[in-house]
Design a protein around this nucleic acid. Sequence first.
RNA 1: GGCCCCGUGGUGCAACGGUUAGCACGCGGCCCUUUCAAGGCUGCAAUACGGGUUCGAUUCCCGUCGGGGCUACCA
Length: 483
Amino acid sequence: MRFAPSPTGYLHVGGARTALFNWLFARHEGGTFILRVEDTDVERNRPELVDGILEGLRWLGLDWDEGPYFQSQRMEKYSAAAEKLVASGAAYLCYCAPEKYAGGDAAPAEEGAEQKAAGPRRVTRCNCREGKTASPDQKAAVRFRVPVPGTTQFEDAVFGKREVANEEIEDFVLLRSPKGPEQAAGLPTYQLGVVVDDIDMRITHVIRGADHLSNAPKQVLLYRALGVTPPIFAHVPLILGADRTRLSKRHGATSVGSYAEEGFLPEAFRNFLALLGWSPGDDSEFLRTAELIEKFRLEGVSRTNGVFDRAKLEWFNTQYLQKLPIEELAPSVAAELKRSGLWQEEWAGAKREWFSRTVDLLRPRTRLLPDFSTWARAFFSDTFEYDPQAREKFWKDERLPVLLGKLADGLAALPDWNHDACDHTLRQLAEAEGVKAGLLINATRVAIVGQAVAPPLFETMVVLGQERVVSRLRRALPVVAAR
RNA sequence: GGCCCCGUGGUGCAACGGUUAGCACGCGGCCCUUUCAAGGCUGCAAUACGGGUUCGAUUCCCGUCGGGGCUACCA
């Protein structure tokens, strides 16, 4: 199996899913997963983008066994194959201007009804095919001689039996015409590049986007002309935006890098992506990577284009945030805290256990990794702000300054600092003062973590420790009184 | 325009001739409760349409409509 991106953009979710399917299939079958960069188009090629693509794959946990290979470094193979095809008569030199073949899609400029009915007929073959063009011009492209009449058939693992009349297939270009006199042979096109490389790398299964479905017959023809049995093709449906058009920039985030930055967990993203266009056949949703590998079958791949649903992705992320074994989650949280400058080395050492407990306490309420350094900042830093809405909502009662002062005193006097002791102290005070415990609980929460939304109060107190809780409570008194 | 693919709730999937059409996300309600999540229970919501074939169609065939892909010396 292989994943063969071209460095003309970032790694987008569609490409990532293609890579994932190839990877899952390779791992399931015990095959080899190869990475190949298809950079034969010097015009739009942007080499600096390769690193980003590899980074995206690594983030997703898709490790490759070979490569990355670069087509730009394998040029001799393509020209050799083209030569061989010309020699055998399977391909020929074409001197025509590219525009002659293009223009099939040139919409009729006029609105004339007759013209519309007839439709523009595109050129699929030219006289060069017969070798009639005697122009000894150097600017010849190499075209494949599609055997006509005839029909090309192959089996797609997802779409089933495919058959296309060869008349429908144009004599496609294998080698572009040389750009200048110094260029001996032209650069290969995608069609030649993939086939030559897939043969050379002994690819047995080609899993790629359904936008390549119509390329498959051409490639099958090429394989046969080269005397090689074609691989098994498996075209996977496309990923669409909410408006059911192909996912693109205007749909918002489409690069996997942007999801990494937002703070999604790679395994959650992977689980989500795997279930977009593929189903294990049952109702299971939450599938760890090992299960994905175990259950992945080409038969489960859908034929219907699917919509990328961010809400469901977020659901997966919250699920993983909650269910991942703490030792698997902790490193991601640590990375987030380092990123935001809150990290302290002792949390990986002496206070390792405290860190785990705190993350564990926080995680049911987080949606994205950055929540740990923003919303939960007070758990990792003494400098934090009081959320305005929280103050507004829970610091209304004018008895609060006095009550919280007493609470601070009571907590400070506690010989043992634990959940029940804190609980008891607070409730006893509430009763003695004739107020509801909830009043104190909510106000205290805002005072010690600055947020209205936070984990249960007494567990929070335990994790923060006596000294912090008491000092934060006292620090808040003037602010509470001020409102 | 031509060639091709697809069509189950708003979204992702299941049911591959016989189910009260199932699950998940989302949305609403209830429970839990110290805030907010999570969790539990529950409700809303679909076989695009029209013809066939069949005792019986979500499922098979045809047409219509809708969406998508390709139509480059891009990949």
